[in-house]
Nucleic acid binder design. Structure first.
Lengths: 131, 131
DNA sequence: CCAGACTTTGACAATCATTATCAATTGTAC
DNA sequence: GTACAATTGATAATGATTGTCAAAGTCTGG
């Protein structure tokens, strides 16, 4: 049985009000700063529950942290992430989906899963870096 | 100045004789089993040197480990990996390359990097699992 | 509203991969 | 061979994540 606790709500809301991807640690820090006495372990649990339930997406940052995000699009999609400021754009990639499936089956693989993410510098950060 | 030590050679060779991706820990264990007194830290250092020098590819497994592999293809390419036995197929993906670049610039992003890997069950493991 | 059953919490310890430390060792150039 | 600087490796340190378990919270049926 799943129960409704203010902690879970807090995590869900904190995720919702964040623009880009956040680490569990970062989200915990933010909640603490906001005055919430929530525990770190609880944030980890809530996040992986949300990810399991499809309410959040997760990915590994290039530094090896697990990052989470509440995504607006319901279905399967990928991300374009600014490696400087964290700005995230959701991208549809039907072409890539079918490509992945094809490549997999062409080589005899079943149950394909794929990791497809694009990192870069957003327009603003590109300007800032160049300047 | 770069020096040639038997340790570096050992790592290079161990990588070369491995089919799929290996974790640093796994490679170290293999070398030790083979009678080499090489140190764990050294394996890590050698691997990241090889990766830097373009002699090896690295990726993050779904379990959060860093995996390494000596790749035959010189240029940029991606991988199709069996999540059960580690069998790896190198795949060319021009379509994906251009797609990534396009998506990035369409959204104002510069310096695009992308992570594109496909995991699945290879033919053999599919049979084994179904049986 | 109340009790009891069952979850969830959270402080803390434990784990796991990886990185830093630093003295001892070993290539390399001359 | 000698001297110098890079490399090694045992071990400690780090940092994210997960396990533990008693205490506290939540839901359900009376």
């Amino acid at each position: 049985m799943k129960r409704n606790t203010w902690q879970r709500e807090a995590v869900r809301e904190a995720l919702g009000t964040t623009d880009g991807f956040v680490s569990a640690q970062g989200l915990h820090a933010a909640l603490r700063d906001g005055g919430s006495p929530i525990g770190l372990a609880t944030v980890y649990r809530a996040l992986s529950d949300l990810a399991d339930g499809g309410e959040a997406d997760s990915l590994q940052s290039m530094e090896g942290e697990a990052l989470y995000r509440a995504c607006s699009t319901d279905g399967h999609h990928h991300h374009l992430i600014c490696r400087n400021c964290g700005l995230t754009v959701e991208i549809e990639a039907d072409a890539v989906e079918t490509w992945a499936t094809q490549v997999a089956s062409a080589n005899g693989f079943s149950q394909p899963q794929h990791i497809v993410d694009v990192f870069g510098l957003c327009a603003a950060c590109t300007r800032a870096t160049t300047a």
